Computed example of a mutant assay.
Amino acid sequence: MDAVNDAFFDGRPKDPEDGTAGTPSNGKATLGQILLAAEELWPESLAEDWDEVGLVVGRPAATVSKVMFAVDPTLAAIEEAIEWGAELLVAHHPLLLKCVHSVAATSAKGLAVHRLIESGTGLLTVHTNGDSAVGGVSDVLADAFELEDVIPLSPAARGLPEEGIGRVGDLPELVTLGNFAARVFELLPSVAGGVRVAGDTDGLVRRVAVCGGAGDSLLDAVRASKADVYVTADIRHHPASEAREAAIEGRPYLIDVSHFASEWLWLSAAAEALGNVLADQGYDVEIRVANTNSDPWDFILTPGGD
């Protein structure tokens, strides 16, 4: 991830005028200093207008020696972070995306807030800003699929030309849809839902569009990109049906994967990128990826299954 750091980090960022980032001591970082590093990598200005990103729980002056990354801030992921001794959990998905009027511990989200505060564990959300940034969720997918000449599927309104939601690029050589789908299945973590495919298994594909997370709202952009196949998650019935009806010679084919799985690959890359930035600044912070599988499904029944 050195390319990410070179693109976004050219020296220690200055502390905010209010001093909330704190002062390092003997290589220790404050939460505020980690927030500055995260902003260099995943600027909040790249977040979609509807999104809620940034610090959810935590004091910027608190010292942080351990950081854990997770897709979802579920109670299980929070407990894993607390047990390890992390002072910060970086979650891709927001804990409080919709308006709330209570964080009483009588609800799961309220209990999550209580556990975080009581344990002294901060929570940072890096969502659509993490999707859009260079080295973000879809860039990691594109790299995993070995795509070349990659560009954003939907360029960012506020950002660099290479930033935006989704990516589209070309495979080094033509492959069948069946073989490419098998590669997708092998690269992503195993979850109950598996991988669903719409299209001719023997059809040839080379141009590939990807979007980590729910991406059926980008189907018009996929068609405009002339992609042979689109890999994303949570494709709903009607958008999938309409896409197949409007397909030209069956394309774009569709590969529907687990929302969790499509974003899980980013965690290690994000942890490495943050670790590199902090190390360059002289901070000694241990970073790891949570083992918690937050995919919500446990098993699936299919026709003809044993």
Rank of each mutant, 00 (worst) to 15 (best):
L177C: 05
L177H: 01
N179P: 05
A181L: 09
A181Y: 09
A181M: 08
A181I: 07
A182L: 06
V184N: 00
V184R: 00
F185K: 10
E186P: 05
L187A: 13
L188K: 03
P189G: 08
P189Y: 00
V191M: 07
A192W: 04
V195K: 05
V195I: 15
V195H: 03
R196C: 09
R196F: 14
R196A: 13
R196T: 12
V197Y: 07
V197N: 02
A198D: 11
D200W: 01
T201Q: 05
T201L: 00
D202N: 12
G203L: 10
L204D: 07
L204H: 09
R206T: 10
R207F: 15
R207D: 14
A209C: 10
C211F: 14
C211V: 12
G212R: 15
G213Q: 14
G213C: 14
A214Y: 13
G215T: 03
G215L: 14
D216T: 01
D216H: 13
S217Y: 12
L218Y: 13
L218V: 01
L218P: 05
L219G: 00
V222R: 08
V222F: 10
V222Q: 00
V222E: 08
R223I: 14
R223P: 03
A224H: 04
A224M: 10
S225Y: 01
S225V: 03
K226T: 06
K226R: 14
A227Y: 02
A227L: 09
D228T: 06
D228G: 01
V229S: 08
Y230D: 06
Y230A: 04
T232K: 01
D234E: 15
R236D: 01
H237D: 11
P239R: 14
A240W: 04
A240K: 09
A240T: 08
S241W: 12
S241Q: 12
S241N: 10
E242C: 05
A243Y: 03
A243V: 04
R244Y: 15
E245W: 12
E245F: 14
A246W: 00
A246T: 02
A246Y: 01
A247W: 01
E249Y: 08
G250L: 11
P252K: 04
P252S: 05
Y253F: 15
L254P: 03
L254R: 05
D256Q: 05
H259A: 00
H259P: 06
